[in-house]
Nucleic acid binder design. Structure first.
Lengths: 276, 276
DNA sequence: CGGCTGCTTGATTACGCTCAAGATTAGTGG
DNA sequence: CCACTAATCTTGAGCGTAATCAAGCAGCCG
């Protein structure tokens, strides 16, 4: 199925993703990391955001040993599917992954977009079955962390257990924020808040917070925000007409951050101290 | 501010809550538990649902020792408030608690209703600050579990660490389900799903799944479901007119469970195996 | 008993969905 | 490399669901 032609194209996609000095999205680590796929945690640029945060020295070594680095997953590939048995959690290393829960009537709800340094699969622990599907939005690479091994290490390494609790807690917190968005905000506020969230997350990863590419489709965005595709499109147009952002297909440039914040409306009172 | 009159009234509320043989809601444990507030985990009827699940013998003893039982909290009392420093998580023992995140413009989003056996405060771990307020909907009692002690025990007791992960994972899963509801369901489906959720949770706790009292106001329900109060009220009326439920103020009797399920519409594909 | 809050019901409005068509881009194969 | 097809995105028109506004009712508590 995979001809040499295909391989070339994907290689190009991949290089685009890691191109740091272009005006386009850069959701990946340093170019050097690509060459040797098996980068140790201590050398990974996401070290500070990811599971190893707070874990160091010998302990980090141990954690590093149980982590399996996977080859890059192509756009459209599933990391895991709904119903799959739960064996590992995943950390995004480069690219981006969307997770969504399908319903019996064929609908889907996108539950999140995951950028480098973020963890997937935490919702599968309780039932030992993945309640959602994780699909790669572009060529991405992920670290696979076998959960039974991670649990063992959790007893041995206090800082790791603590970090796991923190990561899961953050996930709960983020989802509560999203509930607020879905429950109380109108279309304009939703899209503005979404753009700010992406912007903030890119910034933390060392990329521009004003110019980036959205790897997900308008459809995905709408689904995630509880809006019709058409509404998302109209809001983008409106923002552009108002001079708040400049949008060209996937590429977004935020022109007036101040106004975008005002458009996003009221945030949870906590949000101020929270550097997500 | 609190005259003796008040005290009496609250005592009455409390007795109502624990009255098992009336047709009204019964969200509490056995009457015997009330007398001696400090029930050990091993004697607690919620043992199987709560944090101690899977922990036994000597280990359960240790867990038991760090848990502080609080006196009943009265209706309207806050367990903790947004912005409070995080020191402990809480397990509901009887009654019910709502959590909500206030926004800067004075709005609120109810993020959950917590019944006996359920854990609160997990969203505060990552930032060490409570991002929401927890308010008691009726006279309730809770167990306070100091988090630093719990973390220590987590290293010593593998089954406890595991249970913590499971509890947090379940929370994430539940919130994803709620995201689906807020993003994709109409008013009718939302209220039907809500009633089914409450019904299911009462059943697991040994109460009737067809007759119960809702401790929260219509306002809270609407807020939680992303609907106006008026819409909630209209939907209750519609359900009653259709003979699906019988509603009298707080009291709900489900007459046609089958039809209520159909009204709730499509569930996540996982939901079938999930006995929440 | 009177004031208050919470709930219900009705009338009107508006936001965003649906349907539909066209435009642009991406993917595929000759 | 270009042409064709499929998919995605944009824009417009009309409609429907639920919000808003407004009033009345019932239960609760002082």
């Amino acid at each position: 199925m995979l001809g040499p032609r295909n391989t070339v194209i994907h290689a190009i996609d991949w290089r685009d993703t890691i191109n740091r000095d272009s005006g386009t999205a850069k959701m990946s680590e340093k170019v050097v990391d690509i060459a040797k796929i098996k980068v140790a945690c201590q050398n990974c640029s996401l070290h500070q955001l990811c599971l190893p945060m707070g874990v160091d020295g010998e302990d980090l070594q141990k954690l590093d040993e149980i982590i399996k680095r996977r080859r890059p997953v192509k756009r459209g590939d599933d990391l895991f599917q709904v119903g799959d048995g739960f064996r590992a959690i995943y950390a995004v290393r480069s690219g981006s992954i969307k997770t969504y829960t399908p319903t019996h009537d064929g609908q889907e709800q996108v539950t999140g977009f995951h950028l480098p340094g973020e963890i997937l699969g935490l919702d599968a622990i309780s039932n030992s079955i993945h309640p959602c599907t994780a699909k790669s939005l572009e060529t991405s690479s992920v670290c696979e962390i076998p959960f039974d091994r991670l649990e063992e290490l959790g007893h041995q390494i206090p800082s790791l257990q603590r970090q796991m609790f923190k990561v899961m807690s953050r996930e709960i917190f983020e989802e509560e924020s999203h509930m607020l968005l879905l429950g109380k905000r109108n279309a304009e506020e939703r899209l503005a808040a979404f753009l700010l969230s992406v912007s903030r997350r890119f910034k933390r990863r060392g990329f521009s917070d004003t110019e980036f590419n959205l790897s997900m489709s308008r459809n995905d965005i709408g689904n995630y925000l509880g809006l019709a595709v058409e509404t998302v499109s109209r809001m983008f147009t409106r923002f552009q007409d108002d001079g708040v952002v400049e949008v060209d297909r996937k590429s977004v440039k935020i022109l007036d951050m101040e106004r975008l914040h005002r458009l996003a409306g009221a945030m949870p009172v906590q949000q101020s101290n929270c550097s997500a």
